[in-house]
Amino acid sequence: MSLMLPSALETPRSITGVAPGLLAALRGEGDALRPVRSAVLVVVDGLGAISLRAHAGHARTLSAAMTKKSVGGAVFPTTTAAALTSLLTGVAPGEHGVVGYRVRHPDSDVLVNQLTEWEAAGIDPLTWQSAPTVFERASAAGHAAFAVGLAGHMHSGFSRATLRGGRFVPAGAAADRVAQAFELADTHDGAFVYCYLPDVDKAGHKYGIDSAEWVAALEDVDAALSQRVPDGVGVLVTADHGMVDVPAHRHLLLDAAGGWRDGIRHIGGEPRMLHVYTEPDADQAAILARWRRDLEGLADVVSRAEAIDAGLFGPRVTDAARARIGDLLAIARANYALYDAEAEDQRGRGMIGQHGALTPEEWRVSSIRLGAFAS
């Protein structure tokens, strides 16, 4: 089965090029970004380029700095765990190994949430995600490296997998996080500073991207980024992915009564991009054919081999990453979401804004230059 891949997944303007580009700017060797005294990477989780442009009046700082070239592509799947890891390592999920939201641990045969369950699952962040981080590379080159975020993220397994090599500096409100990032960049010449803003993503999940709450979160982030950038400091603002609103009538429930669990051991991933793991003795070809037939027009269903051959997980897929990818993948179209009706935890069905699939709203992200990068 052939897939129509977003072209941004295959261009140098993918988010995998962000970290290398910033380090090159610190060395004075960059082509895309001019040399700077210090560099700040601001990631606004969940803020897709299409949503930003649609709400430009509520984000005057960001929209004023946008140009026709201020758009790049995310990675697949368009989910925080995979995409943030790509942003902070410079490689695609097939190489860093964080290939989805909930994936099967090949050794224990259990599904593991890649954001929150590292410790509970006994996963070693240093080996599960072994690609060097931008912080490790910056430190090795003699640059101070910092990560500014919420205090609750400081000691998580995901942070140890993606932020290692940097000094974590906690801060509260979005404006405080941005101010802290700018101050660190200003007082440590040659520094690489990462600032994480999850506020928009949280509002989108709970209320949707056209809600008053989402707009308020966007306005708050935009106001935070309107602060004066110190002289000689370059700031790049991007996102890990975008988002679409999924109404309740577009929820597709995969239940045992409908035959969806026949031959299936685990359903992982997330509602817009399922990792489906079959039983060891199952007829995978028959299952693939059945899922394609029953989800025709609603989702693209591909085998692991087809997804890898199509380059969905990047140009290189390690053996470790391959073992974590589902035997088949169900990638939602339009604004549908696929739910495992047999799962114990059904809280995800309350989410309005969702992501994970390949629509332009999900994979197209902004790349906005402020400070010395814009001058």
Results as ranks from 00 to 15, higher is better:
A248G: 02
V215K: 11
A217G: 06
A332R: 08
G232D: 08
A282C: 05
R293T: 13
V233P: 00
G263H: 14
A305R: 14
I287W: 04
V235F: 09
V317L: 01
A239I: 13
L218F: 10
D210Q: 11
V246F: 09
V317T: 15
R261E: 08
A217W: 15
A307C: 02
D245W: 09
A310E: 10
G208W: 13
H275M: 10
D220T: 15
R250P: 04
S303K: 07
I209T: 15
A285S: 14
G208M: 08
P315K: 06
T318M: 03
G234C: 05
A248Q: 12
Q227C: 02
A286D: 14
T318D: 01
L225F: 12
V317F: 09
P230W: 07
R290V: 01
L312K: 08
L252S: 03
G258R: 08
G242A: 01
S211W: 14
W291Q: 00
H251N: 07
A286H: 13
S303N: 09
Q227N: 05
E213V: 09
R250S: 14
L312F: 14
L298H: 13
D283M: 12
A212S: 13
D281Y: 01
I287Y: 06
V246M: 02
Q227V: 08
I308T: 10
T238V: 13
R322H: 15
D220F: 05
H249F: 14
A239G: 03
R290M: 15
I308S: 00
E296W: 09
I264C: 10
G258P: 01
V244D: 03
P280I: 04
A257S: 12
A320M: 03
R293W: 04
P230A: 09
L312I: 11
A305P: 00
I209W: 04
Y277V: 10
A321I: 07
A323K: 09
A285I: 11
A256M: 00
H251E: 13
G258Y: 07
G263R: 11
D222T: 12
R265L: 10
V244P: 00
V215N: 02
A321F: 07
L218A: 08
D283S: 04
W291R: 00
T278Y: 10
A286E: 14
S303P: 04
L295F: 12
L288Y: 10
A305F: 04
G258C: 08
I287D: 00
A248C: 03
Y207W: 15
P230S: 11
A257F: 07
V276M: 06
V221T: 08
T318W: 08
A305T: 15
L225N: 02
T238M: 11
G208H: 11
G268L: 12
A320K: 11
P271G: 01
H241C: 02
T318I: 01
G268N: 06
A285Y: 13
A282N: 06
A239L: 12
G297W: 06
A286Y: 14
R304A: 03
Q227H: 11
